[in-house]
Amino acid sequence: MSQQFINQLTELQQHVYAMANLVQDVVEEACAVILQPDGALALRIVERDAEVDRAEVTVESEVIRLMALYQPTGSDIRLLCAILKANHDFERIADGAVNLAQRAQHLVGRIRADDWPILRAMAHHTRTILNHAVQAYLHRDVRQAQQVLREDAPIDRYYVEMVEAIIAATASHPERTATYLDLLSIAKNLERMADHATNIAEEVIFMITGQIVRHRLDQGSLAPAAE
């Protein structure tokens, strides 16, 4: 492959870094909104969605252009495919953060995060899992990616606990149902954001090893990809 391709791949990586960092920022702010409902911050998160969308299109366009012009193979095609798929997951994570922020706007002055320790824990874990996925992605670290896959299960458990807590709270205080639905939506968005972070980790594993590990996580160990 020409040096030109390698240079353009390096340029693409810069866009990838920018996208990953942007989404990390948005998620940080979204988690902050959960912990401390803040209407202005929530509004800013919503407004940053367009910025994420532009970054997503930039990366996608560049990947398609490189594929069309250079017909990459081997580790190059795996890299570009992984970037393309992870790019979509990053955009979906940001969408989750925006949805979450919109719901959080409704909560200003209505709840205290301290009353919902499960939600706090979910926010913390989602932020952590995303950061680990981004580290694995940017450093092409398979071990870190495998760790991310293991980190998703606690968030799923938190979500189940959250649903149970909300059902109980709604039964006790039916007049607050609207607020609880907002909380449920926030929890669901956190759970989905963590799922997308997991997808990114799976793409990292594919990028480095060529193995497709989606749907193959078995009791914490990665089963080898079938033929």
């Binding site: 492959m1 391709f5 990459p72 193979t73 081997g74 190059d76 095609i77 060529g210």
Partner: peptide, 17 residues
């Protein structure tokens, strides 16, 4: 071979390194 070669030498060749 073109998506996940087992040998680094193969990968280097098919990716034009």
């Amino acid at each position: 071979l073109f998506t996940n070669p087992s040998q680094k030498l193969t990968n280097d060749y098919i990716t034009g390194r």
